[in-house]
C-alpha cells in the first residue's frame, strides 16, 4: 500500500501525540498505583488502651437512676442505652467513613461473616450482637482493603483515637452517638473473644477490621484492629 507523504506525516504526528499522551497517563496511573495506597495505618502501642473494664467505661451519667438488680450477674448499667433498632448507616467523621450497613451472620464454621472481598463492600453489622445503642457489645465489621480495588471502608480504622465520634443511624430514625474508648490490635489466632464480644455494663460498640503485615502466601492479614466505643447520646436522624 502506498501512503501519500502528507498522510504519513500526519499519521506520524498523531502517533507521536498518542505516544506522549499514553505515556503520561501510564506514568501517572502507575505512580498513583504504586504510591497512592500506603499500607493501612495501625494503632500505635501508645494509643492502645486496655479493653474497657466493667467499671471504667462510664461515659455519661444515666438520664435517670436505674435500680440496682439484686444479683451481681445483671450488672449495674453505666451510661445511656437505647431500645433495640437495627442499624442502617455508619458515619465516622475522623476517618471520613460514611457507609450503609449490610447485615452479617455467622459462617458454618462459627466465624463471623464478612462482606464480599471482590466488591467495594459496605461495612456490616453482626446480627448476633446487640443493635447499636442497646446494652452489650454491638459489632460492626468492615474490610481494610479489597482483593484488587484498593482501599476499603475501614482502611483508616487504625488511625482512630480515644475521643473520636462514631455515629450510627438506626431504623427507628435515631442516631446513636458513640465515643471511642480505645483502639487495640490483636493476632487473629489469639483473639480475645470475651473482651470484644463479652457482656458489658454499657451500650458498647466495636468496629473491627484487619491489621498487621499482609501475608502474601496465605493472602490474609494476621491481626485484627478493634475500636472500642461507648454510647454517649442520641438524637433524631
Amino acid at each position: 500500500m502506498i501512503i501519500p507523504a502528507e498522510k504519513r506525516r500526519r499519521g506520524s504526528r498523531l502517533a507521536t501525540a498518542a505516544a506522549v499522551l499514553l505515556f503520561t497517563i501510564g506514568c501517572t496511573a502507575t505512580g498513583f498505583a504504586l504510591w497512592g495506597n500506603p499500607p493501612p495505618s495501625r494503632p500505635p502501642a501508645s494509643a492502645a488502651v486496655s479493653a474497657p473494664s466493667q467499671e471504667s467505661v462510664s461515659a455519661a451519667p444515666s438520664p435517670e437512676p436505674i435500680s440496682v438488680p439484686p444479683t451481681p450477674r445483671v450488672d449495674r448499667i453505666v451510661g445511656p442505652t437505647l431500645t433495640a433498632s437495627e442499624p442502617t448507616q455508619i458515619n465516622v467523621p475522623a476517618i471520613e467513613v460514611d457507609s450503609v450497613l449490610m447485615q452479617l451472620g455467622q459462617n458454618p464454621d462459627g466465624t463471623v461473616q464478612t462482606p464480599s472481598l471482590d466488591e467495594a463492600s459496605p461495612a456490616g453489622w453482626y446480627t448476633g450482637s446487640p443493635t447499636p445503642g442497646a446494652i452489650g457489645p454491638s459489632v460492626i465489621l468492615g474490610h481494610v482493603d479489597s482483593r484488587v480495588q484498593g482501599r476499603a471502608v475501614f482502611y483508616r480504622l487504625g488511625e482512630m483515637r480515644p475521643g473520636d465520634e462514631i455515629l450510627v443511624t438506626r431504623a427507628d430514625a435515631t442516631v446513636a452517638v458513640f465515643v471511642v474508648d480505645g483502639v487495640e490490635e490483636y493476632p487473629k489466632d489469639d483473639f480475645p473473644q470475651f473482651a470484644v464480644y463479652g457482656n458489658t455494663d454499657h451500650a458498647g460498640l466495636r468496629l473491627i477490621t484487619c491489621g498487621g503485615e499482609f501475608n502474601e502466601t496465605t493472602r490474609t492479614y494476621p491481626n485484627n484492629v478493634v475500636v472500642y466505643a461507648s454510647l454517649v447520646s442520641s438524637h433524631a436522624a
Binding site: G110, G128, G136, H143, S146, G150, C210, Y221, N224
Partner: peptide
Amino acid sequence: QANMPDGGVGTGGGSTSS
C-alpha cells in the same frame, strides 16, 4: 448479650498491603 463467634475476623483482601 452477643452470640460469640469463633476467632478473628477476615476483613482484608491485601490490595493495599504493598
